[in-house]
Simulated assay, not measured.
Amino acid sequence: MFLPQRSYVPSGTLCEALSYPATSDHYDTASCQQALEAVNLAGYAHRLDDIADWGAVLSPGEQQRLAVARALLLRPAILFLDEATSALDAANERRLCEALLFFLPHTTCISVAHHDALRVFHDREIVLGSGKAAFFLLEK
C-alpha cells in the first residue's frame, strides 16, 4: 500500500472515504471507529454515515491521519509512506507511528522523509544524495 503526502479522499460517506479503495461494507463499524480513534480522529467516529466532500472538510493533517487509518484497516504486508505525515505536528506524527507499530506488527513500513523525527520508529536508514532525503525501513 502506498500513502503519498496527499492521499485521495473521495466524496460520499466518511465510511466510504475511510474504506477506500474497498467498499464501505468491507469493514464493520467498530473497526472503523477503532481506526479513527487510533489516528486521533475519534471526533469523527459518530459521522461515519455522513455524506460530505471529505477532501474539503478535513484539513491536510486530518487527511493524512485518515490515510493511515485506511492502512490500519487494510493491514498491508508492505506500507510505503511518502512524506505521509508531513502535515502533522510532532505529537500526531508520533501517535500515527506508534499506531502503525502496534496495529500492524507484521507490516514492513518504508518511509520517505526530509526530517529525522521518523528515525526512531525504524530499524534501518538509507540516505540519498546530499543527505536531504532519507528512506527509513522497519522490517518485521
Rank of each mutant, 00 (worst) to 15 (best):
A17P: 12
E37C: 13
F102A: 05
A87W: 00
N92E: 08
F135T: 06
F121P: 02
P76D: 04
L18M: 07
P76E: 02
C97W: 00
C15L: 15
A38Y: 00
R70A: 04
F103P: 01
G61E: 05
D28C: 12
F135P: 09
R124W: 08
F103H: 01
A87Q: 03
L72W: 01
Y44L: 15
R119S: 11
V9A: 08
D89T: 04
D89S: 06
R94V: 15
A42F: 07
A56F: 10
L41V: 12
K140P: 15
L101Y: 00
R65G: 08
P60Q: 04
V39M: 06
H115P: 11
L101K: 00
D49Q: 15
L128G: 10
I110Q: 02
R94A: 11
Y20N: 07
A52R: 05
L58V: 09
V127T: 15
C32E: 02
P60G: 13
L73S: 06
S86I: 05
H26K: 15
A38P: 08
L101N: 01
F121D: 00
L81Y: 00
P4I: 01
Q64T: 11
Q33K: 15
Q34S: 11
Q64Y: 05
V39C: 09
G12I: 07
A71I: 05
A77H: 13
E83M: 06
F102I: 02
Q33T: 08
F136E: 00
G129H: 07
Q5K: 07
D28R: 04
A133K: 14
D82A: 03
R47D: 10
R94H: 12
K140H: 15
D89P: 07
T107G: 04
E93A: 08
D49Y: 11
